[in-house]
Design a protein around this nucleic acid. Structure first.
Lengths: 336, 336
DNA sequence: CCGGCATATTGGAACGTTCCAATAGCGCCG
DNA sequence: CGGCGCTATTGGAACGTTCCAATATGCCGG
C-alpha cells in the first residue's frame, strides 16, 4: 500500500494533476462540481497532503518555532499552551524547543529553526541573552517576536511588569505595611528589572527604604530563604512570581508563622494554583494564556507585514486580592 | 541577499554540486581536503542547510510529533522537557501538540502530524481515547510509542502504576493506618485503573475495605473535597498524583487539620515541588524526566526496527518518605 | 602499454507540490 | 462565421536536496 499522491487522485477523478491540486486547495476557479469529484476521489483513496513538498516549492512552512526558557515552570507551561492553541487556530504548527535558560542551547535551537525552516520564531530569551540576538535575527530576515522577556525594540508581547509590582506594593502600603521586601529576581533580564522597578518606585514614592532578597525562581530556594526571616524582619513580601510566593509561604509555615497573618505575601503571574492555596494567594494576574495568544498575534502580524514597525503589546495586569496579604481578614481555619 | 544553496557553495569551492552535497554531509568517500574546501566555502557564503528539500527527497523528516494530554500539568511539563532533550540529542526535532484531554483535538493533531510529515509520534493519550487508535496508527504505518498512559499492546514507556500505589499503601499500613482512602482518579485510562489497583490489592491483602473519593486532577477540586472530610473519616489518603496531594493538604489545613499529623497523605509522580512543601510530601517517585527519555529511546528503537516486537519499558517507582505521612515524626514547626 | 580495480568526483533523475503561462470550450457580437 | 472575452482546465518548469549510475584518475600486474 503505497502512499497516495495528487497524481493518483487526479487519475482516479479523471482530471489533470494541476486540476486536482487546485481542487484540493478548494480554489474557486474550478467548478464546484469538479472540486467535489476530486475531494471524493481523494477520500476514496485516502490521500494525505504532503507538506514537505509544498514547503519546498512555496518557501512557506506554516510552522513557527517556539523557544521556551523553562518549560517546567508552570507559568511558561501555561503560556506555551496559549501560544500553541492560537497558532493552531491560525493554521500554524508549533515546533517546541526548551532552552532551560541556556544561552548556548538557545543559539543551537535557533540554527535548527533556520534549517527546518520555520516561518517565524517566538522567543522567551534565556537569562543573559544579549540584545544583539535581535540584530542577528534581522540579518537573516527571520521574523520574530519576544515574549514576556523582551528588549528595547522588536515585536513583543508581555505583561507590564513595572505596573504589576507597583499595584501589589501600593496595596500592601494601603494595608499599613512599612517594611516591605522584594523576594526573588536579581537576574539580568527585562522581567527582573521591571518588577523590581515597580516595587522600588512605589516604595520611594512612600518615602520608604527598599529591601532586596535575591532568590532563584524555585519553591525550594524561596522556602529556605524565607524560613530564616526573623520576627524583626519585613512584615510583607512582594514576590517575583507565584512559585516564589508559594515557596515563601511554605517557608513561613515551616518557621511556625502564618502567611497572611504574621507576614503578608503577594505573587505575580496568576497561575491556577494560586486560587486553591491555603492561604489563597493575592497575586498580580497577567493571564499567561492571554499573553501566549497575544504573542502569536503579534508575530503573525509581523510576518504579514515584514516592513512595518513591530507591534509591542504590553498587557495591563490586575491585582487579585485574596487571603495571603491579610486584606481578606487573614486566613482563619473555617472549622474546628 | 538571496539565500545560498548547495549550488552556490559548489561554485565557490570549484566542485560539482553533488560533490559539495557529499562534502557537507562529511561523507568519507571524499578526500578530507575536498571536504574542508567545501566547508570553508559554505562558511564563507553563510550557507544554511534546507531541511525541507531533504525531507521531500529522502522521505525522512527527522521530526517527531509529541502529543501531550495536558501541558499545564507540571508532571507532563517535566516529562515533555525530558522527551525534547533526548530527541534533540538524537538529532530529532520535537513538534508539540497539546490536546488538553480532548480526543477530538488529538485526532486532528495526528492528522497534522501525518501531513507534516513526522517520522514518528509519542502519545500521551487523552482520557477516553479508544484502543483502536493504535490500529489506525498501524494501518498508516506511523511509528508510535505511548507514554505514561498506554494500552495492552504497542511500544510504551511509563511508570509501574500498580506497584507505585502498592508501595504507598503498604507504607501507610505499616504505620498502623486502617482507614485509608484513595483520592483522585476514576477516569477511564490505564493510569487511573493501575493506581487504583495497586491500592485496592494492598488493602485486600490486609483484609481492609477500600474507600474511593473520585476527583479530577486539579488542586482546587482536591482541596474542596478534602476540606469536607470529617474527623470520623479516613486517617490516611493515597492520592492519585502530587497535584491532588497538594490539594488534599491545602484542604486539610483549611479545615484546621494538620496533614502528616491528623491525616497522612501520599502523592504520586515526585515532581520537584514535593520536596519543598510544608509538610514535605511523601510520594511515589517516577522521575518524569527519566520517563520522557525512556519514551524517546523506545520510539527511536521502534523506528529503527519497524517489524520487531515493540518494547515496553515499565519504570519501577520508589517511595520517597517525607513528612506528610507522619513517618518522619510529623511536621513540627522548627522555630517558635 | 593495456586491462582491471580501486578511489574520487560528476551528471542527472527523482521526490510531490506550487505557480504560471497556455489552451480548450463556449457564448456572443458585429 | 471569424474573432473576442470569459471561464474551466491543463502542461510543464521550478523548488533544493538525495541517490544512483556513470565517469575520470591513478596505480598495479602482466
Amino acid at each position: 500500500m503505497e502512499r497516495i499522491r495528487i497524481k493518483d487522485v487526479a487519475r482516479e477523478a479523471g482530471v489533470a494533476l494541476s486540476t486536482a491540486a487546485l481542487a484540493l486547495r478548494d480554489d474557486t476557479r474550478l467548478r464546484e462540481e469538479t472540486r467535489r469529484a476530486v475531494r471524493d476521489a481523494a477520500a476514496r483513496l485516502g490521500y494525505v497532503y504532503d507538506r514537505s513538498a509544498a514547503v519546498m516549492r512555496s518557501g512557506k512552512s506554516h510552522t513557527i518555532g517556539l523557544l521556551v526558557c523553562e518549560i517546567t515552570n508552570p507559568f511558561y507551561a501555561e503560556l506555551t499552551a496559549g501560544v500553541e492553541e492560537a497558532l493552531d487556530a491560525a493554521g500554524y504548527v508549533t515546533i517546541l524547543a526548551n532552552t532551560s535558560e541556556s544561552v548556548a542551547r538557545q543559539k543551537r535551537m535557533l540554527e535548527r529553526f533556520r534549517e527546518q525552516p520555520v516561518d517565524g520564531v517566538l522567543i522567551m530569551p534565556a537569562t543573559g541573552t544579549p540584545a544583539t540576538l535581535l540584530d542577528e535575527l534581522d540579518k537573516v530576515r527571520l521574523p520574530y517576536a519576544t515574549v514576556v522577556r523582551g528588549f528595547r525594540r522588536g515585536a513583543h508581547a508581555g505583561p507590564d511588569d513595572r505596573a504589576g509590582t507597583r499595584l501589589a506594593t501600593e496595596h500592601l502600603l494601603r494595608l499599613g505595611h512599612r517594611r516591605i521586601a522584594f523576594l526573588g529576581g536579581g537576574r539580568k533580564n527585562s522581567v527582573s528589572t521591571g518588577r523590581w522597578d515597580g516595587y522600588a518606585r512605589a516604595m520611594a514614592k512612600a518615602g520608604l527604604a527598599t529591601e532586596h532578597m535575591p532568590c532563584p525562581t524555585d519553591i525550594g530556594e524561596a522556602s529556605r530563604l524565607t524560613r530564616a526571616l526573623s520576627a524583626a524582619g519585613p512584615t510583607a513580601l512582594v514576590c517575583f512570581n507565584d512559585s516564589v510566593a508559594f515557596g515563601a509561604m511554605l517557608g513561613l509555615m515551616r518557621a511556625g508563622r502564618k502567611p497572611g497573618v504574621d507576614v503578608a505575601v503577594t505573587g505575580f503571574d496568576g497561575i491556577r494554583e494560586a486560587a486553591a492555596w491555603y492561604p489563597s494567594l493575592t497575586t498580580v494576574c497577567v493571564a499567561p494564556r492571554a499573553i501566549g495568544q497575544a504573542a502569536a498575534r503579534v508575530l503573525l502580524q509581523q510576518m504579514a507585514n515584514p516592513g512595518s514597525t513591530p507591534i509591542r503589546e504590553i498587557l495591563k495586569p490586575t491585582l487579585i486580592i485574596r487571603e495571603s496579604c491579610g486584606a481578606a481578614g487573614g486566613a482563619p481555619p473555617d472549622t474546628p
